[in-house]
Design a protein around this nucleic acid. Sequence first.
DNA 1: ACCTGAACACCGTTCAAGT
DNA 2: ACCTGAACACCGTTCAAGT
Lengths: 203, 203
Amino acid sequence: MQAAIDILDEEGDAGLTFRALAARLATGSGAIYWHVADKDELLAAATDQVIVRFEPQDVERLSPQEAIRALSQGVFDAIDSHPWAGAQLSGNPFQYAVLRILEGLGTQVVALGVPERGRFNAATALLSFMLGLAAQYAVASRHFRDASDRATALRAVAAKWVELDPEQHPFIHHVAPLLPEHDDREQFMAGIDLILAGIDTSR
Amino acid sequence: MQAAIDILDEEGDAGLTFRALAARLATGSGAIYWHVADKDELLAAATDQVIVRFEPQDVERLSPQEAIRALSQGVFDAIDSHPWAGAQLSGNPFQYAVLRILEGLGTQVVALGVPERGRFNAATALLSFMLGLAAQYAVASRHFRDASDRATALRAVAAKWVELDPEQHPFIHHVAPLLPEHDDREQFMAGIDLILAGIDTSR
DNA sequence: ACCTGAACACCGTTCAAGT
DNA sequence: ACCTGAACACCGTTCAAGT
């Protein structure tokens, strides 16, 4: 598993092949199938490991809101440092890592005092938002290797957005300059806070 | 494009290969490359078409909240009837279809009276949530062909969740029975409403 | 019980050659 | 300007054969 994670971190999604993993482990490619059913299972297991590593400690001491924020930051950091995990999470919402996240969120939603029938929707809304961001990160990592590549790409997208007809795309045109300088983490947490505020009014 | 969409609808993501598309068009596989740069562009174009078809008419007559709900339902319906588009949307957040959705959302966020510095975050929060759901739908469509397959699979997941240790996974254990009977569309709109409520408090 | 590595059945993409 | 289709460089997966 660690060898797989190393390859994913170094080469990204496309770099992890059974042949590459076998070569790194100095074994035959077929050998991996003794330990893992297929590539999906391999990626799911790698993602689970990475997510668990970023789970916050002793959330019990925090208020429900603070706990949800801590959980969210953990997921963000996990995806931020292992973008391939973002692709896997959003591409496979029934894997164990997602279940763990949902469990953490759900427990805090209950603690928040959300009435029974609203709990499932509140917890899954937070989860869907996270997976949405996970997807965005995943694609970013596929397209450019490092942070400066990313900045350049965002500037390029922003330049394209500015050139759009302001009549037909007023919002995009107006918001384009924010794109290259915005802080992903801040944007992510702002979204979480928005949903938390919404949950608060629904009680 | 229509031939590609037909294949995607009939066979799903995996069914669309250059060879299959060429066969359906009674041409050589290389010919497609004259019209399209690569597979990504093919999928992006197909997704754009499908999203545009589900864009609501005359949103101007609606209140901002109602307009956002109408836009959201359009995206939901598009993904619901063409799940492969969900995978493409969440896997490629800078494609034109996403830009169109963001433009629609942003315009309404402005109309809602959200102050300047909160607009980008509010609109992208709605977008990320939608893409998160898109990802969930996408995986669902990859794993089972029709609605009854899906229902069976959800029952299987729910059964697994119920069996989890209630000590370690109290929320999942408790919420499992809701899984097979919940309405995706309702859950999706509940999430949108939660974010709308949050946006409302942030003004 | 676990590993080997050739073989199978595919892919996306390219490109010389055609019309 | 557009099409053909063989060829290239890969994949994930299987499986008889080994240790």
